[in-house]
């Protein structure tokens, strides 16, 4: 039986797709057969971040509608063994996504895969609700910023009341993933710290990804940031995946970079 993990946040633009792509890639690199599904019908982006946009022939909605088989729609990653992508439809409207349809596809995938990563769209509408509906675990992607934290808290409420697990009296295991973290700004009192966000959301911390120019570089070239060599964000994602798989690893990149004396004196 596969483990189903939703990557969610409520707020848009915080790094759900970036995290989904790197998380799924990391799981596959660790030898686990993994599929990552884009639930953002009409606004698909996971294919671009994974660099497979030119290989999408059939998508998630085609499979739900019975117009294609799962085998036809799954895109096998060319760089990483064990990794598959199921793209969202770019043209259909969201009504094409049905609970029964999603259940059937996830059920079929469960037979073949160890991990099913569901990349949720922003918001708390149907696509987002369905992405989290069948989840066993959830990565809550949060920026250290007021609107993102509030939205994450809202999503936590939904995870514990509206999902299949919640309805059967079980709970979805929640993990906090803080992205775009700038330790220098935290040190200057300009940004919520990891501890602040943990205090407010009160869920276990899985990873902290530092703010990094490399994330844009990675998406420019259609390669998940975790695959870039010698990059802090990649290292942070690798740590996150290792922790998810049960390894104990200290959090890195939480301290401000050392600045020169003059900079420290006048930099503020």
């Amino acid at each position: 039986m596969a483990k189903i993990i939703v990557v969610t946040s409520g707020k848009g633009g915080v790094g759900k797709t970036t995290t989904s792509a790197s998380f799924a890639t990391g799981l596959a690199q660790a030898g686990h057969k993994t599929v990552v599904i884009d639930f953002d019908v009409g606004l698909r982006n996971l294919d671009l971040i994974m660099g497979v946009e030119r290989r999408v022939v059939f998508d998630f909605i085609n499979v739900i509608a019975g117009e294609a088989t799962l085998k036809q729609a799954l895109i096998k990653d060319k760089r990483v063994e064990n990794l598959y992508i199921l793209a969202a439809s770019q043209t259909r409207d969201k009504d094409a996504l049905t609970e029964a349809g999603v259940a059937r596809v996830i059920d079929e995938l469960s037979k073949d895969f160890e991990y099913i990563v569901c990349d949720s769209p922003a918001g708390i509408e149907k696509g987002a609700l369905l992405a989290m509906h069948f989840a066993d675990e959830a990565l809550i992607v949060t920026n250290p910023e007021v609107s993102s934290v509030r939205d994450s808290d809202r999503v936590l409420g939904i995870l514990s009341s509206k999902t299949a697990r919640a309805k059967s009296g079980e709970s979805v295991r929640e993990h906090l993933v803080i992205t775009r973290y700038d330790a220098n700004r935290v040190a200057r009192g300009e940004m919520l710290s990891v501890e602040d966000v943990k205090d407010i959301l009160a869920i276990p911390l899985l990873g902290v990804i530092p703010e990094s120019k490399d994330v844009l570089n990675a998406s420019n070239q259609g390669s998940p940031v975790i695959s870039l060599p010698d990059v802090q964000a990649a290292e942070a994602y690798k740590d996150m995946v290792a922790r998810f798989l049960g390894e104990e690893r200290a959090h890195r990149f939480l301290d401000p970079s050392s600045k020169g004396f003059l900079n420290r004196l006048f930099g503020g």
Partner: peptide, 9 residues
């Protein structure tokens, strides 16, 4: 401002 953000949240 981070302190203010935390209190508001």
């Amino acid at each position: 401002t981070a302190q203010l953000a935390k209190e508001r949240l």
